[in-house]
C-alpha cells in the first residue's frame, strides 16, 4: 500500500471542503471496496477522508411515501430494518445479499452507490426503484446518477448524504451470485409503483446497471411473470468472463426478471 494521510471530519461541510481541497482524495465509507484495492496497490489515494465521524449520515426513516437511508448506514442495518421489513421488504433483500455478514457490518449504502461497481447490488435497487440520490449539493435521480462502470454523476467534491427510495407496492430482487466473489453475476430488481414499472439489471452490463425497457413495457400490460415469457435481451454489449458468457448473462437476465416478478406479485 502506498502512503497516505487521512482526515476524520465531523460534518458534511468539512468533508466536502477537504474533498475540494485535495484533488486526488478518496472518501472512506465502509472501505470494503477501497481498502482491498489499496492493499493490492491498484489504487493509491494520497488522502483519505473518513466519513465515519460525520454526524447525521446514518439511519433509516419513513418520510411520507419514501424510505430515506443515510449514506453511512451499514448493510446489516438496512437488511434488518423494521421500517423496510414493513414498507419495502424488497429493498432489505438487497444488502442481505451483499458479501457476507462481516462485510455487511461495515459496508455502507452510500459507499456502494458512489462506487458503482458494475457487479454491485445497490445500484440495481436505486435504478429499479427510481431512487433519488441526495448529495451535499443537490438531488439526483437514479436514472441520471449511474453513468457507466465505476462512474457516476457525482462531482469531484460532492458527497452522497442519503438516498430516498419511493415505496413500491410490489418489488423484489433476484441475484445470481458469482461463485467466487459473491458479487452479482447478474442481479435483477423489479418494482411496480402506480404507473412506474422498473426492471433494473446489474452484473450483466459492461457499462454497469441498466434498465430493460422491453421488459418494463411488457410488464406494464400486466405485472406477471408470464408477461415476460419469450422475451429476452440481446447479449451484445454484456459482460463476458470465465464465469459467464454474454449469452449466459442475457439468459439469466430473463430468468431472474421472471423470478423477481413472481416474488413481487406474492407481496
Amino acid at each position: 500500500m502506498y502512503a497516505f494521510t487521512y482526515h476524520r471530519p465531523t460534518t458534511v461541510r468539512q468533508a466536502a471542503n477537504l474533498l475540494a481541497k485535495h484533488e486526488d482524495a478518496k472518501l472512506l465509507a465502509g472501505g470494503h471496496s477501497l481498502i482491498p484495492v489499496m492493499k493490492l496497490r491498484l489504487a493509491s489515494p494520497p488522502v483519505l477522508i473518513d466519513l465515519s465521524k460525520v454526524e447525521g449520515l446514518s439511519g433509516i426513516e419513513l418520510k411520507g411515501r419514501s424510505i430515506v437511508i443515510g449514506a453511512m448506514t451499514r448493510h446489516n442495518d438496512v437488511a434488518r430494518s423494521k421500517e423496510l421489513q414493513e414498507h419495502l421488504p424488497a429493498l432489505a433483500e438487497v444488502p442481505a445479499a451483499i458479501g457476507d455478514p462481516h462485510v455487511r457490518h461495515v459496508g455502507t449504502i452510500g459507499g456502494s452507490v458512489a462506487n458503482n461497481d458494475p457487479n454491485a447490488d445497490y445500484p440495481a435497487a436505486c435504478l429499479g426503484l427510481g431512487a433519488t440520490i441526495v448529495t451535499s449539493k443537490r438531488k439526483i435521480a437514479a436514472d441520471d446518477f449511474f453513468t457507466g462502470m465505476f462512474s457516476t454523476a457525482l462531482e469531484p467534491d460532492e458527497i452522497i448524504t442519503k438516498i430516498s427510495f419511493p415505496i413500491a407496492k410490489k418489488a423484489a430482487y433476484q441475484k445470481f451470485k458469482h461463485p467466487a466473489s459473491g458479487f452479482a453475476l447478474v442481479g435483477v430488481f423489479v418494482s411496480k409503483r402506480a404507473s412506474d414499472i422498473r426492471v433494473a439489471v446489474t452484473g450483466a452490463g459492461a457499462n454497469g446497471v441498466f434498465r430493460v425497457k422491453a421488459f418494463e413495457e411488457a410488464l406494464a400490460q400486466r405485472f406477471t411473470p408470464k408477461s415476460l415469457d419469450g422475451l429476452s435481451i440481446k447479449p451484445d454489449g454484456l459482460n463476458s468472463d470465465i464465469h459467464a458468457s454474454a449469452e449466459y448473462r442475457a439468459h439469466l437476465v430473463g430468468v431472474l426478471a421472471r423470478r423477481a416478478v413472481a416474488d413481487a406479485v406474492k407481496r
Binding site: A180, S181, I242, H243
Partner: peptide
C-alpha cells in the same frame, strides 16, 4: 492466470 485470486477462483 485469469483466476488469480479468491475473487475469480471459486473456493
Amino acid at each position: 492466470l485469469v483466476s488469480g485470486s479468491f475473487m475469480d477462483y471459486a473456493m
